[in-house]
Design a protein around this nucleic acid. Structure first.
Lengths: 148, 148
DNA sequence: ACAAGTATGCACCTTTTTGTAAGTGCCCAA
DNA sequence: TTGGGCACTTACAAAAAGGTGCATACTTGT
């Protein structure tokens, strides 16, 4: 077995050969998160969440249908589902006008805004390196059955 | 591009009801990506990739085993798999010393480095808002069967 | 000799995530 | 009446993603 289960550390002979290297930069402040990045990822790691946040960040509040059309290829189910999670995580605010033909809109909370801002560099990176990125994808798709 | 919805307008009632709103900020330069963020996500959206990049970014090159121990809970399969993808995507460089007991190490390419830097804000966000984040998780887990 | 560590490969299987299609209640326009 | 839009909801797949465990080839420590 490889060392997965932290069995009893019965390591006797030469136990600390290499210590887990970087320990400073990431603050393991709270239980469960290895570092800030880890914490962040657990909140936005979903296919459409970053896009939703980013979209909401750049326009004012959006109505459900607008978002739906703006974010290409997202389905109702996914959009609603992720909006709900974002809402219950305190990143997005949902406003229901309780009107007869339904009218609802979504906007960012301050927390959501701050996260959206943290996403900006990623967006820039993608824009700046888009050629490389698309080359990568050409490779993946072109080569078909192997890479991934 | 704040509030305008392309209403250039058609006073004509029917056909173009609402156009996809924000079209400026994200540069839809290349086919397939709706914006830079989209492109970036397609490259790093995997459970361990951001963590791998981030780790590699803060120490020099790491040997396979070190990474394995450093990134808690990752399995051999996943680590290797994602390292390979990162390698073939040009973000990570693998150096095989071809020694008898295998010895290999991984480091970031310049491209990988730039991406890792774009991840810094996310890491900071997580660190800064870790309390909120863990509250969110307490809710999710505590409430069990409903939320998510 | 035997266990353990090194860096992977591979087959098999479970869990998560995402997608598809259809349906709801209500209103307006043709 | 039919059709469409609005904002969702639900049941049922399909597809990823992730995990476990065994194997390799070789060395070193016990």
């Amino acid at each position: 077995m490889t060392a997965s289960k932290t069995k009893t550390d019965s390591s006797v002979p030469s136990p600390p050969p290499q210590t887990v290297p970087p320990e400073g930069t990431c603050t393991p402040t709270l239980p469960g998160f290895t570092c800030g990045l880890d914490a962040t990822l657990r909140i936005i790691a979903a296919k459409w969440k970053p896009l939703i946040l980013y979209f909401l960040a750049q326009g004012g509040p959006y109505r459900y249908g607008e978002l739906r059309r703006a974010i290409r290829d997202v389905s109702d189910k996914m959009l609603i589902q992720q909006l709900k999670e974002l809402e219950s995580d305190g990143l997005v605010k949902r406003t229901d006008y309780k009107e007869i033909p339904p009218r609802v809109d979504y906007s960012l909370t301050p927390l959501g805004h701050s996260l959206a801002e943290a996403l900006v560099p990623l967006c820039s990176w993608g824009t700046e390196h888009m050629e490389e990125v698309s080359r990568v994808f050409a490779k993946r798709e072109g080569w078909g059955a192997k890479g991934r």
